[in-house]
Design a protein around this nucleic acid. Sequence first.
DNA 1: AATATAATTGAGAATGATTATCAATCACAT
DNA 2: ATGTGATTGATAATCATTCTCAATTATATT
Lengths: 143, 143
Amino acid sequence: MATYKEKFKIFLKEKDLKYTIERKEIIEVIIKLQNHFDADEIYQQLRKHQSNVSLATVYRTIPLLIDSGLIMETLHFKEKVLYEKIYNRKHHDHLICVNCGEIIEFYDEDVEKMQNRICQAHQFVATEHRLGIKGYCKKCQKK
Amino acid sequence: MATYKEKFKIFLKEKDLKYTIERKEIIEVIIKLQNHFDADEIYQQLRKHQSNVSLATVYRTIPLLIDSGLIMETLHFKEKVLYEKIYNRKHHDHLICVNCGEIIEFYDEDVEKMQNRICQAHQFVATEHRLGIKGYCKKCQKK
DNA sequence: AATATAATTGAGAATGATTATCAATCACAT
DNA sequence: ATGTGATTGATAATCATTCTCAATTATATT
C-alpha cells in the first residue's frame, strides 16, 4: 500500500506532471489534516509551517489531489466547498449540525446496497454518491 | 390544501411581511417552472413574462420561498445552486449525469427508513437529507 | 554537468454568483 | 388619507475561485 506521497508522485509521473516543492509541501500538509477542510484551510496550514505556497497554487493543486484519488469534495457548508482525505478509507456519509457545524461521519452497508439497487433500476452507472443529513446534534437540540 | 400562492401569502402575513407585486410575480413564475432551477432562471422567466423584477429581488425572495416551505435547495451543479418546488410533493432524491447534466428523480422508502435509523443511532434530529448519486446516464454510458 | 523544453509558479487582475447599501417607493393598518 | 416600516432597483461590494503572463523550475536528454 503506497503512502499518500508515493501515490501522488506516481499519479503525477503518469500524467507527465512535475513533482514540485509546492506540491510536496501541499501533500505534506494534507497528510496532517484530520478533519474536513477547504482551500483556505490548506493555505493557512502551509503558512503555519513556514511554506510560502500561494493560494493560487493551492487551488491549482486540488483537482490533482482529487484526480489522484487522495481527496474528494464531500459537502458544501456556508458557501464553502469542503474536502476530505479518502485514500485508504472506507466510504462514509455525513450528519451535519446546522447549528454548531459539527460533522459526524457514518458508514452504513444498506446505503451502499440501496445505491446499487437504485442505479440498476435506472440503468445508471454511479461514480460517486453523497448522502448528507442536516439537522441538530445532541448538544444543539437542548437549546 | 392551500395553493402555492395562498401558502406564500399566509407565510408573509404571519411574518408581518408584505405581499408585493414583485413577490406575486415571482411566485407566479415559480408555479409554472417544471424542473430544477437557479436564481437566474427565475429572473429569465420573469423577463419572458414582461416582468421587470430585479435580480436582487429574486435573490431576496428565495429565502422566503424556502422558509415558507415552497421550494428547497436540492443540489449544486456547475457552481450553481439549484432549487425545486417541494410543496405538496413527496420527498425524493437525485441521480445526476455528470456528462449531460440530466437529473433523474427517485423515491425510495428504504432511504427514508435508513435515515431514521441512522439519526436515532446518533441522537440526531434531522431537518433534511439529501442523497445525490453522480455518474453516467444510459445515453452517456455508450460514449 | 549543461541544455532544452514544457510545466509550474506567484502576483494580481478578472470572473461570476451572491449580498449589501441606500435613497425612493410602496403596502397596509389605523 | 396618513404614517410607518418594509421593499425595491440600481449599483457597489464581497468572496471564493479562476485566469493571465512573465519569470522560474523540474526533468529528460545531451
